[in-house]
Design a protein around this nucleic acid. Sequence first.
DNA 1: CCAACTGTATATGTTATATATACACACCAG
DNA 2: CTGGTGTGTATATATAACATATACAGTTGG
Lengths: 150, 150
Amino acid sequence: MSEPRAIAVQIGPISPAAPGALYQQIVTGFKREIGEGRLAGGIALPSFRLLAEQLLVSIITVRRAYEELEREGIIYRRQGLGTFVAADGRERSRAAKRGHAEALIRLAVQEATEAGLSPAQAKAFVSRVTTETLSEAKACKAPTLSKSAA
Amino acid sequence: MSEPRAIAVQIGPISPAAPGALYQQIVTGFKREIGEGRLAGGIALPSFRLLAEQLLVSIITVRRAYEELEREGIIYRRQGLGTFVAADGRERSRAAKRGHAEALIRLAVQEATEAGLSPAQAKAFVSRVTTETLSEAKACKAPTLSKSAA
DNA sequence: CCAACTGTATATGTTATATATACACACCAG
DNA sequence: CTGGTGTGTATATATAACATATACAGTTGG
């Protein structure tokens, strides 16, 4: 008997037009799924071929993404067996997201300062955009109450 | 008589190791200098060859950067004459910085949310990092009181 | 053992970046 | 007006990251 195997469609959408490399989009998607607990430790990720087929990318691109996730300790690979979420994958994924978020904020503050905003103005600007983004995100999840296919 | 010509050394440091393409680093540097008013409208930017020599990059890389800045309406080029800061270069530069900052914040908030933070926690996290960054930036400018060469 | 899955490795094409070199335009000294 | 020296401009070339196809190697279960 083996671990349950995750479905892949939740990772998308992956697109060459989207910002960032294809493999990076896959990495980001899995960090989200693992970080939010939808892929628990021990769960097997989709195989290279399956995910490649579903996302319309090559096997090597999937491999590249999995390599990156393994380098960060979020998943591990076993030849002939498959690829699995690490026991502490969720924590590591969340830590990576937090670190990334912090770096982005620091950049944003620097940009705001260089845009001519005073420290107080910069703080207000960041606060306003943050609140806006949070309320928009909430709005996107609320209307999902209509009946959908099982 | 011609417009004064700006010096280049303030743009750096430019490095292949730094994040982003070389030409992009140059773009960012000029947006900062123009946005903060140190390069006013009408001022001539350094020539391709001079800047290339000072930054240890090729002429084409400088050209690439200037093309990008012209596309955003921050500077304009005149063959045989030189490259100049646009009349509204400062405003456009600041607007670009603000837009960039806003995009970064939205990304950061999304990452923070996917890291498992609640909206309230995300807001607190953003606020804390913002304050930290601002105080660090202030600390870097204060100690510049020692005597320096004229 | 063999078939059918897994992940792995090598060679190749495409694109973005960075470069060197040669060219065209504008000003100014003579 | 003519040439020199400074501008920006254009073409062809090297390098690195990204993405791909194809062939290889390990694991499992009939």
